[in-house]
Design a protein around this nucleic acid. Sequence first.
DNA 1: CGACGATTTGAATAGGATCAATGGGAGTGG
DNA 2: CCACTCCCATTGATCCTATTCAAATCGTCG
Lengths: 232, 232
Amino acid sequence: MRPEDLKAVRALPLFASMRQDSFEQLLPASFLQRFPKGVTLITEGDPADFLHVVVEGAVELYATQKRQESAVLVARPVSTFILAAVLRDAVYLMSARTLESSRILMIPSESIRTVVLEDTAFAEAMIAELAQAFRFMVKTVKNLKLRTAVERLANYLLRLRIEAGGAAAFSLPYEKRMVASLLGMTPENLSRAFATLKPYGVNVDGPQVTLTKLEDLERLAKPSPLIDDHEI
Amino acid sequence: MRPEDLKAVRALPLFASMRQDSFEQLLPASFLQRFPKGVTLITEGDPADFLHVVVEGAVELYATQKRQESAVLVARPVSTFILAAVLRDAVYLMSARTLESSRILMIPSESIRTVVLEDTAFAEAMIAELAQAFRFMVKTVKNLKLRTAVERLANYLLRLRIEAGGAAAFSLPYEKRMVASLLGMTPENLSRAFATLKPYGVNVDGPQVTLTKLEDLERLAKPSPLIDDHEI
DNA sequence: CGACGATTTGAATAGGATCAATGGGAGTGG
DNA sequence: CCACTCCCATTGATCCTATTCAAATCGTCG
């Protein structure tokens, strides 16, 4: 593992405060690997053998049922995923695939479970991470149950604008089909939702989005920090 | 606090393994209170001042947006809720109200956050609890995104049957309006979903449900442990 | 008994999904 | 460099799902 990668991983909230010897205990059995775009990393229902850390690239976490599939979230550097399955020594509830060429650090679940019992600081970090992940999922449920597809899109765009530093123009972080899946709709319906939002100052050109009537869009979207703010 | 209540709380997975002195440290500032049916215990957006433990009764956790509201889960004895908000020292993402006359133990967030740093066993239990709560929310999202309303109801009934020990007849645990809200539909739509399921052997008389064609219902519902089993 | 709320049913509407067809790029191989 | 292919995105038409509004029934509780 390259020193700069090691450093990035160590800087993660989850690993930043743990003892050095604990951290080093995790490393021997771990490995960092590069995967091309579109590779399935884990499959739902399989035992959680490794904690995964996205060091570079992007990973889609999605769920399937018969023919259908739906994206639940996208993990970006540097973050972990399927932490809960690892800690409970359970099966994965979601599958994961790379959205682009990515480098993934894989740490054996066994090591994680051992170290968490020995290093209090690591346990604390774990608690914070899990609590945040839980809250994210609560927000996701609220988003799905209390809003229509158009409202979800409107709020998503407002959020992207904030993450772009408040710029009126920004670009979608993923292909539209992925955005549609994340927001819980079909690609066709996303196209129509964009068309619906046009009178609210939403202009789309490929991946580029421009918001020209922020007030109008916000009046429609009714954004709420208790759903849209991923920091709290 | 009555000795038998203390014992029940102590027996909770979250509190069972912690040190006695830690447990006792939580108690002085805590109080157990009885609330009648329909009382709002917490309101979304408020700071999380207390961890709540349902000692007796039932508490609905729900989310609101403008006029709408939607139930996310029901907390039954003996379980805790809003643990994540407490640990992160954040605001509540959901509101809570008693569904029936209930007794609630309230433990100051401050105490929880202090003790979790001092008692490793408590921290471990917290991790397990949070991981389980996270996984429950993932299942909820999958249920919402991958199934229609009729499918959600069908699977819910199959689950209730299992929880009733496999009996063909059982009763709904809540009023139908609450079931509808939990499953993400309107009361009218729940009525119609029940009607849709009649050919699949679902007979309803008030709160009483009887399933007479289990195979047919399962073929429709396509139950999945990765969504419906709350144990894994 | 009367009021209220829960539930059901009907009718109309809105929200989304599906199916089908077309246009556009990006990447590949000649 | 160009043609070809494939997949994404858009649009139209249609169908299905679910919500809304309204009204009727039912049961419970005071």
